[in-house]
């Protein structure tokens, strides 16, 4: 089995991985970080979202063996205003989608800061505005079966520095 170095939440760990193992399974089963969740294992829910070299990605579709030396941040390693905002706005219930929402939100806010447009950006050539519609669209890759969306959007607004 190939050995890789995973830099998860600032700690470098050397692990032997099955080439078939996803980053999600290696984090959860071998490195003991169960903050990324497995909701579907097929890229269809967002529960496994982590930040890979700062970008939000799905760890269930990422082969661990391709992550040698990569920087991985999971919700357990995030410290960001969005977390308190989620608590304040009760932007979750069961909490199972939440770590993925948190990582996704951090990535999303960075993408926004970089001026990336979204599907609902009215004018692609202008800098987007962080409206509720924009946030909802950008967070739509994170399903929440408890239906906390109506609280997630205000939480994001608060985390982004707007009126909560």
């Amino acid at each position: 089995m190939p050995e890789i170095t995973v830099r998860a939440n600032g700690h470098a760990r050397r692990v032997a991985v099955d080439t078939r193992s996803t980053l999600l399974d290696v984090l959860r089963e071998q490195l003991g970080d169960t903050s990324p969740k497995k909701g579907c294992d097929h890229g269809q829910c967002g529960a496994c979202t982590v930040l890979l070299s700062g970008r939000r990605v799905l760890s269930c579709l990422t082969l661990a063996v391709s992550c040698d030396d990569a920087e991985v941040t999971t919700a357990a390693g995030v410290s960001h205003a969005v977390q308190q905002a989620f608590v304040d706005h009760d932007a979750f219930q069961c909490g199972y989608c939440t770590p993925g929402q948190i990582c996704s939100a951090v990535g999303m806010l960075d993408e926004f800061a970089d001026g990336w447009p979204s599907h609902v950006t009215p004018d692609l050539t202008a800098a987007p505005e962080l409206t509720d519609d924009e946030m909802a669209e950008r967070m739509s890759g994170n399903l929440c079966r408890c239906g906390a969306y109506a609280n997630i959007v205000p939480a994001l607004r608060q985390a982004a520095g707007g009126p909560g």
Binding site: G39, C40, H42, G43, Q44, C45, V120, D132, D133, M135, A136, E137, M139, S140, N142, L143, C144, R145, G147, Y149, A150, I152, V153
Partner: peptide, 18 residues
Amino acid sequence: HDFAEYHIATCADAANIE
């Protein structure tokens, strides 16, 4: 039988519920 085909509401569908 999965979340790509069995749709449940996303954030973009259900962000405004009071």
